[in-house]
Design a protein around this nucleic acid. Structure first.
Lengths: 248, 248
DNA sequence: CATGGCCGTTGATCCACGTCAACCAAAAAT
DNA sequence: ATTTTTGGTTGACGTGGATCAACGGCCATG
């Protein structure tokens, strides 16, 4: 069945059922018949070049986006110019959920490399959710996962030290690369030290120093944006009992 | 019509349509006919005494909760004992959304005072969402609002200084009290300095000192947990251009 | 293959907040 | 009413990470 469908431009256009990202994306866990209905959902694809915005804070909310290729960052900015990266997103992850509440996007989504997204018109999603059993549930799970992730970041920002934050970040990246079939131990970061710092609530110099320290200690090998994890157990230990031995 | 309905125990039991919190809670924006259907939704009420858990991290997820009276905090804990308050919730706000993603709660919800919640069985919510037009949309908005709120906290934790964080916290509390018909300028905090500190990523001593400083500067009047805001414009200014004048 | 603009690294210094400790007020327990 | 406990304030001091500054290696562009 599957092999008999030739890969054509129109075939590529919107088929969730043909997409190799199903297991990471919105359609996860849905039945074949449900999946085929999903193909109606994705309106179009949209390419976003490196450094370009997928959407901006203040833009009217119309659709959510599934990342088909590439990666993004989201950030919020204060009037005084300060900004904070609120997340990095990889293939299969969903962007734009922040817009539902006020019908206006509340953050900026910027491509870290040339990327492509599937546009999922929100009105159509709500409509189809009424009919397709699994879709509603899956969508709720995606939103809930985002909330849980954010709580994790709050924990990191509120109660971890610089090196712990970076270790947690690296382990998280590794785990997400693994889920996408890439090496768990060796990967290429698409973001700058400054962006990592912003996400982790640190200055870029502190991030750089922490990388160097990890390298000295044999935990990782760093070469610019190329990272090799040499001792993941060591990184994990670093997070857990930084305060160990002091009895508090 | 409304006056003719006697307030009985059974009448009190589950009626969203009779509840004075509709405008803050899940039913917001729904039509009268939709509202009446919602009354099927709320299974029961549950009282939670001060310091008791509504649910714990690891508990199986079965329902979300709308706060009818009182207030809560949610927190996450790391294996090494560190914990982080991820939010404070007031009447009309929804608790438990974190549980949807893994079908297990990922944080603890603890009452800050003797409280009462409406139990909303999640399976029933999903079911009813298929039928009641506005419910699904409103639920999505509630989840999205939580995501936006979390981004705000990340901004606060990642790029604000101690006094800015506390000012933002006080203004946020004020705004939420106002929405509930209480004074914007004078209120009683239900949480300790330590809990505020945990939420803001600060130690309790730092919170206490910031309170004292605000008082010295005539921005607020503090008497233990009782707070009076004397200069909200001043507090707002404090957040915006802390860095002003330095040209960066 | 040269040149200019990022991006990352590293060092020296500073300061905001954490830590440690003493003390006091309020509330709870007896 | 008295003791105990819990929560809050304040001071002295230490430190992790910010700030300021210099430099070096990439990568893009002509």
């Amino acid at each position: 069945m599957r092999a008999s469908v030739p890969i054509t431009v129109s075939g590529l256009k919107t088929a969730c059922s043909q997409c190799n990202l199903v297991e990471l994306c919105l359609p996860f866990g849905m039945s074949d018949s449900e999946l085929s209905r999903l193909d109606e959902l994705v309106g179009a694809r949209r390419k976003v070049k490196r450094q370009q915005n997928l959407y901006r804070a203040g833009d009217p909310f119309e659709a959510i986006y599934a990342i088909r290729a590439g990666s993004f960052k989201t950030d919020v900015l204060l009037e005084d110019g300060r900004d904070q990266v609120t997340g990095f997103q990889m293939t299969g992850e969903i962007l734009g959920l922040d817009g539902i509440s006020t019908e206006t996007h509340s953050c900026n989504a910027i491509a870290l490399e040339d990327s492509e997204v599937c546009v999922i018109p929100y009105a159509k999603l709500e409509e189809l959710s009424h009919e397709v059993e699994g879709l509603q549930h899956q969508f709720h799970k995606v939103m809930s996962r985002e909330i849980v992730r954010d709580h994790g970041v709050m924990m990191l920002l509120g109660s971890m030290r610089a090196e712990e934050r970076l270790a947690a970040f690296l382990l998280n990246m590794s785990q997400r690369f693994t889920a996408r079939g890439f090496s768990a131990a060796e990967f290429h970061l698409r973001m700058t030290r400054e962006e990592i710092g912003s996400y982790l609530g640190l200055k870029l110099e502190t991030v750089s120093r922490a990388f160097s320290r990890f390298q000295e200690e044999g935990l990782i090998a760093v070469q610019q944006k190329h990272i090799r994890l040499l001792d993941t157990a060591g990184l994990r230990k670093l997070i857990q009992h930084q305060t160990a031995g002091s009895g508090r």
